[in-house]
Design a protein around this nucleic acid. Structure first.
Length: 388
DNA sequence: AATGTGTGCAACCGCCTGGAG
DNA sequence: ACTCCAGGCGGTTGCACACAT
């Protein structure tokens, strides 16, 4: 049973406010303060008029780029909690932000191929959604069109995972007509009590930009809160890592020597890193390690990493630098491996030094850089299922 | 000039919550 | 424990205006 509108019930004025009414309300509130809202209009209407229009600390005018970015990142975490978002933007009201979102930001994100609700890239041509051949054909055409326009197109594998702490991560690979690739990684708050951990990796890429993926599946080991190591294998071209709150993804698709990527992730013990910061060797860090794989070694630190790949005949170097832009991790391949930094294992710890004086077997990962802002997520407890 | 359509924004509606009685 | 009511919030509507046809 819905209630009657208070204005109707009390036969009070409705509609647009006149300047006289505004003045009356303004004087009333400046004299008596907020709290007693009822004049000749209902209290709700008065309150709203004050909050959204008359309040002297309102900013008004266009939203700055900074405010826009702030709203985007807040919305990614908070969703449509406009009041909470407005609380982070001095001088802006929830109504104003809500209108700005609905009329402007939402469309902007759509244009960028980002779902405004989930902040995830809108997938094109996912087999999951394709039920009939026609749809599949259209999807492929869309993909081709996008590639011709040099826009980045989402490609397999993609993944999505949730954890018990209400975060979800999704990611995947994007490629354009020039075969330039971007890895995307996106985080948002969700409130799904049924946490899950789901990977999808299927099919070969039809655009030619992402192949070597004919038998994709992901073998994921369970990750425990207190176990510092995470290891999983994949014979797709993406590798994912999770450490102490950081999530990273690596693209191995350019590595022709490794048809099967197998990674050991060496996880940063942040407490140990802090302790070692006073050490005379700067950048030296302690790592917990389950050992090295001779094919690929990878270190993750603050979502920036690189790796070397070697076998008996070849030594390949592949390095990516990662940047976080609007909540997404973007990767850039480094053409020249950084040789001035290297890692070595000593006494069960992985140490970092500034030159190549350490003679190590196989290859060891090289830290490229640290990001200014971590992609931080809580630990992941359970692997529920994966899709292959 | 008349009409249709899209857009931005102010205001309203309905639901929920918490405090008072 | 219950009702009533004010206030808070998010979704929606309606209106004025700009622009297109």
């Amino acid at each position: 049973m819905g209630r009657h509108s208070c204005c109707v019930k009390q036969k009070l004025r409705k509609g647009l406010w006149s300047p006289e009414e505004d003045e009356k309300l303004y004087n009333h509130i400046t004299r008596l303060g907020v709290g007693c809202w009822s004049l000749q209009r209902c209290g709700k209407s008065c309150r709203l008029r004050w909050i959204n229009y008359l309040r002297p600390d309102l900013k008004r005018g266009m939203f700055s780029q900074q405010e826009e970015d702030h709203i985007l990142s807040l919305h990614e975490v908070l969703g449509n909690r406009w009041a909470q978002i407005a609380a982070q933007l001095p001088g802006r009201t929830d109504n104003e932000i809500k209108n700005f979102w609905n009329s402007c930001l939402k469309k902007k994100l759509m244009k960028q191929g980002i779902d405004p609700t989930t902040h995830k890239p809108i997938m094109i041509g996912s087999d999951h959604d394709v039920d009939d051949q026609e749809k599949k054909k259209n999807s492929t055409e869309n993909k081709a069109n996008n590639l011709q326009q040099s826009t980045f197109t989402a490609q397999e594998p993609t993944f999505l995972l949730n954890d018990h702490d209400n975060y979800s991560i999704n990611g995947g690979l994007l490629a354009d007509a020039n075969n330039s690739k971007e890895i995307f990684l996106n985080k948002q708050l969700v409130y799904d009590p049924f946490s899950y951990f789901e990977f999808q990796a299927s099919g070969s890429d039809q655009s030619g930009g992402y192949t070597n993926n004919n038998n994709s599946n992901l073998i994921i080991s369970q990750y425990h809160h207190h176990n510092p190591s995470l290891q999983f294998e994949t014979n797709s071209n993406l590798a994912f890592s999770f450490d102490q709150g950081n999530v990273s993804v690596a693209d191995f698709s350019d590595n022709s020597a490794a048809s099967r990527v197998s990674c050991n992730f060496l996880l940063n013990d942040q407490a140990a890193t802090k302790e070692s910061s006073s050490n005379s060797t700067s950048n030296m860090s302690n790592y917990s390690s389950t050992g090295f794989n001779q094919m690929n070694n990878l270190v993750v630190e603050n979502a920036a990493f690189s790796w070397d790949i070697s076998d008996d005949q070849n030594k390949l170097n592949s390095m990516f630098q990662f940047q976080q832009v609007n909540g997404m991790i973007k990767s850039e391949e480094m053409s020249t491996p950084i040789s001035s930094s290297c890692w070595h294992e000593e006494g069960g710890q992985l140490l970092h030094s500034q030159n190549n004086s350490v003679d190590f077997i196989g290859s060891y990962p090289t830290l490229i850089t640290s990001l200014s802002e971590d992609l931080t997520v809580p630990s992941f407890d359970h692997v529920f299922h994966h899709i292959s």
